[in-house]
């Protein structure tokens, strides 16, 4: 115990260093299971898809281990078999991309138009009623997506509930054909993704100070102006979150367009599936997946940037 003050200080810092090293080690050890799972389930498969997109397609599906950029070219172009295999823009691909973007944007708009009043209604209920309404909103999540989608066909098909009811009240004489149209896909998507819009909107509106409505109203703003200049800018983070949560899965949707859109009204998700199935062009499927991922990522970065910047210049 003949420690000089100096030795005591170094001894202490030594102990601290050891403790720190140990806590760092512990942190890694504790997060290891999650990290391993994350790598195996997310990063790993993505890596495989990336590698496949640069390989040559096998004769009956699968890949041949030979480097090729053919698949990436195939995302936008196709070989003209009558003209020495020259590259020409693939109209069919572009149509599918455009339909996917269009339907996803419309889905986002519709879910916002329906979701905003819904979220507002829920957020302005007393706490107990609020829990009840939120519970109702989340109920569809308990049922399998495929079953829910088939339930929609039961409503919108020619002999379905909707047409029967409309004919019954004499509004139309012949059933409106909805099945296997873009409209059917849109209805299904809006229904499926509505909760993803309502929940973030609810969270934002719930935090909104309702007294600001009176303040705006008092300062010569009409109801519409209060909505535009007070409510929307303040709940903007909820709108951004909701749009992202709806738009991204919409773009990659598979089940809904498949069941409600039939074979013709394909979206990117179905197109990718086609390459791995009947198309037997795995590299193209892989390249399409990666392209979708990149485009969505870029679009989101751009969207969030402009949306938040817009908030600042507005604010």
């Amino acid at each position: 115990m003949a420690a000089t003050p100096g030795a005591a200080i170094t001894g202490q810092s030594e102990a601290e260093r050891l403790l720190e090293a140990r806590s760092t080690r512990n942190a890694w050890a504790l997060s290891a299971p999650a990290l391993i799972l994350l790598f195996c389930a997310a990063a790993g498969p993505l890596l495989i898809v990336l590698v496949y997109s640069f390989l040559t397609k096998g004769p009956t599906g699968g890949v041949v281990w030979e480097f090729s950029t053919e698949a990436w070219l195939g995302v936008l172009y196709t070989r003209d078999i009558f003209n020495d295999g020259n590259l020409v823009l693939a109209d069919a691909h572009l149509t599918i991309f455009w339909r996917s973007v269009k339907i996803s944007l419309l889905t986002t708009l519709i879910t916002f138009a329906v979701g905003f009043p819904t979220a507002w209604f829920i957020a302005t209920r007393p706490p107990k009623a609020r829990a009840f309404w939120l519970f109702l909103i989340t109920i569809p999540f308990w049922t399998n997506l495929l079953i829910r989608t088939f339930a929609i066909t039961e409503i919108i098909r020619n002999e379905g509930l909707l047409n029967k009811a409309l004919i019954g009240i004499g509004l139309i004489s012949a059933p409106i054909r909805l099945m296997n149209t873009d409209t059917a896909v849109l209805i299904g998507m809006a229904y499926v993704y509505l909760p993803l819009m309502v929940l973030p909107l609810f969270a934002a509106i719930d935090r909104f100070d309702m007294r600001l409505l009176e303040a705006g109203y008092d300062l010569y703003a009409s109801r519409l102006q209060v909505l535009r200049h007070v409510v929307l800018p303040i709940v903007k983070p909820g709108i951004i979150a909701g749009s992202i949560l709806v738009f991204i899965p919409s773009l990659g949707a598979y089940v809904t367009p498949r069941v409600l859109g039939g074979g013709k009204n394909m979206m990117i998700g179905n197109f990718i599936e086609l390459q791995f199935g009947q198309g037997r062009n795995w590299p193209l499927g892989a390249a399409l997946s990666m392209a979708l991922l990149l485009v969505v990522m870029l679009a989101m970065i751009l969207y969030v940037r402009t949306a938040t910047k817009g908030g600042k210049s507005h604010g």
Binding site: R211, L212, E214, D218, L219, Y220, A221, G311
Partner: peptide, 22 residues
């Protein structure tokens, strides 16, 4: 008349300032 048409303004107890504005 609704509040936005009256030449009357209020200073609220909670101030109710707009948080998104300078």
């Amino acid at each position: 008349q609704p509040p936005n048409q009256r030449a009357v303004n209020t200073v609220f107890q909670s101030y109710a300032l707009f948080p998104h504005l300078s």
